[in-house]
Amino acid sequence: MSHLDMLEAEAIHIMREVAAEFTRPVMLYSVGKDSSVMLHLARKAFYPAPPPFPLLHVDTTWKFQAMYEFRDRVAAEAGMELLVHINQEGVEQGVGPFSHGSRVHTDIMKTQGLKQALNKYGFDAAFGGARRDEERSRAKERVFSFRDRNHAWDPKNQRPELWNLYNGRVHKGESIRVFPLSNWTELDIWQYIYQEDIPMVPLYFAAERPVIERDGMLLMVDDNERMPFAPGERPQPRMVRFRTLGCWPLTGAVESTATTLLEVIEETIQVKNSERQGRAIDQDAGASMEEKKRQGYF
């Protein structure tokens, strides 16, 4: 078996364990490339049946328009139920990335929104597409990552996890986050997308897009109405693409001419900065990802 075959088999094994051992699993779906790979693997794991759990999208209401369209289409194709959750309290308080900054916006609309959704439906396991090579605290996380009643991760007290024998035992109210792509690298993901011909949101490919430059970050203006332009600021058309997807005001674009999958992969291989650099949230503080995860962030 090639290493990609091994990674695929491992992910499928993990998903089946979850389907067999939990009462109410769910798959977090964020529309990005990792989610797409995860969903594809789930379809393989349970073929010919559709995956025996719903998809959950925690919608911050600030995603790229192209992401919403893609999401609805893909869920329908997989024959899966799609649950969309929006933190209504956040909406009522008018929380957004421009008015409240990335930290508050992400916390209220994403982290709190996720917790609300998990509590509301009583999910005891939630799949996420995170990989250990993304960031150094993720590199420490188990495949089955235990969360207490407050959805908090305790990195100093993780359950031992030997071989492929995962412990999914939880008391009521506790849950497990499951990461079937733990051992995949970014290159593995791209390679698999290429090999399996998995459809991707067009935002990953370079195109001319309306862009402004702020604090060294290239922002694509996805919604003119909600964009608070500074005086004199005007979007310029530039050839850009995204290496990761999130809320459009918080996700930096990179200049690129890569319009095909192979070109995107080629760029990825040559790149010198890790992909999460494009996300504003990670640079707020030294250990910010770990901090977020302790509080229930995926």
């Binding site: 960031e135 150094r136 605290s137 993720r138 590199a139 420490k140 990195p155 100093k156 993780q158 250990a287 770990e290 901090e291």
Partner: peptide, 15 residues
Amino acid sequence: GLQSEREQGITIDVA
């Protein structure tokens, strides 16, 4: 990669 590991200068969990 963990905060406590950096503070204490030891490894606590596998990376």
